[in-house]
């Protein structure tokens, strides 16, 4: 698992390591959009929790390896200031057959979004604000509501 501020390319991932038992590799690449529901996006600033981030990504990879018959997982997630179209996150999964790799890749990016300690701030022409993905949080009405999906296995 890699947590880094530097950009990365799909090419370096394709060329990394030898997995001769793998008949399939599925990748998900998340990139910065230039627009959100609020405004044009000039940049994203991504904060994370050093130490916990690496541990959490490792835990998610192990969880995926227990749930799906896969051979290997690589997750790269960036932090710092990112411009539109830059890569943010990559999930790559290797397996003997394609179904497990597709399923595990989808599973990993979904659980990562609800539990890996990253926070996005959108920089727009009119100011900067933190992204809130949770409808309950956005509504601001459910005082002290919990996010059980983070604590329980999905």
């Amino acid at each position: 698992m890699r947590v880094q501020s530097e950009p990365f390319t799909l090419g370096e991932v394709l060329g990394a390591g030898s997995r001769p038992q793998a008949g399939a590799m599925v990748t998900f690449l998340g990139t910065v959009r230039d627009v959100s529901e609020h405004a044009d996006i000039l940049a994203l600033e991504i904060e994370h929790y050093p130490g916990m981030t690496e541990r959490e990504l490792e835990r998610l990879a192990q969880q995926a390896e227990q749930r799906f018959p896969i051979l290997d997982v690589l997750i790269i997630h960036r932090f710092g200031r990112l411009s539109p179209e830059e890569p943010i996150v990559l999930v790559a999964v290797w397996s003997a057959h394609r179904a497990a790799a597709f399923d595990a890749c989808r599973y990993l990016i979904d659980v990562l979004k609800s539990s890996a300690p990253f926070w996005k701030k959108e920089i727009t022409p009119t100011g900067a604000h933190w992204v809130t993905d949770c409808p309950g949080c956005r509504a601001g009405t459910q005082t002290g509501h919990v996010h059980p999906d983070v604590l329980e296995e999905p």
Binding site: Y49, M52, F118, W119, W130, V131, C137, V150
Partner: peptide, 10 residues
């Protein structure tokens, strides 16, 4: 111990 808002990575 850390306190933080719901995460928004990915």
């Amino acid at each position: 111990v850390a306190f933080f808002p719901p995460v928004t990575g990915g």
